[in-house]
Amino acid sequence: MSVFVIDPGAFTTVQDEGRWGYQAAGMPVAGAMDRYAHAVANLLCGNPRGLAVLEMTLKGGTFRFTEDRHSAIAGADMGASLDGEPIPNWSCFRARAGSIVHFDFAREGCRAYLAIEGGFDLPIVLGSRSTHTRSRLGGLEGRALRSGDRIEWGAAQGPATPRRLFAQFAPRHGDELVVRVLPGPQDDLFVDEAIALFFSAIYEVTNEADRMGYRLEGPALAHRGRADIVSDAIAPGSIQVPAHGRPIVMLSDRQTTGGYAKIGTVIGPDLRLFAQAKAKDRIRFARVGDEEAVAVLRDERARLDLVEAILREES
């Protein structure tokens, strides 16, 4: 009734939709970095969208199933295999008791998701099973998985069957990204040239890129005055620019507040582009307005509704 961790991979944690509601007390939200892949992995194996899954980073793990069970993968392509046979990405498969599921280095993208029929059955801590490693809270003992861990699964909630997602719903992950950004909340603290530069230059992902945030390399952005502000809240996708002028994009494990001016905010549906970006990937920021950003959010939800409807029809 569980998945046994033979090798966790580079950095693997349990994540769901995140721990909302405690930011006023300073608790980061955490949650799956790629919310679309997380939701689709769950839907593929007959789960509701929000159940806990494993999020693997750059190099996936090796797992043994103790019983027969449906499972699904989505997100980065890590060349997954089931008992030595390749499994296509964005698909549901049936593992047998004793089956070994293996993931390799990411060939495309950065983060892969392994969902299991019924979800991973770990304690719900303050409304969520998401791991926040810096707070040592949630997931499995608040930490990344280790060899020898065993994670139970929960009761199946819907019918599941081996299948592949239609290709049109499976995004590919290139190494040149266009990420949509809403200016603000502190775009007025930058000189006009910095705003123009930000929306035209190419930035590169550095090695300092994790669940908390991605530091980028590229042209420095000049502030009108000081780079520091009276600390305020940091939204998902906030783009902080410290005095050195290079942007830092704040992601799932970000601290709740911070004191650097924020030139813009990556729109929610495009956060998955950062989730799948790795060092040396090149990024261009495209300016959008509120109306367009909301329309993209509506599209994202409609796409998931459609995926859910199609998968339900199939099973």
């Binding site: 809403l182 809240a233 905010t265 729109i267 509120d290 909301v294 993209v296």
Partner: peptide
């Protein structure tokens, strides 16, 4: 009122 993404509204 400031904008912090399509889901963030800041009252300063």
């Amino acid at each position: 009122l400031l904008q912090a993404g399509e889901q963030g509204l800041v009252i300063e």
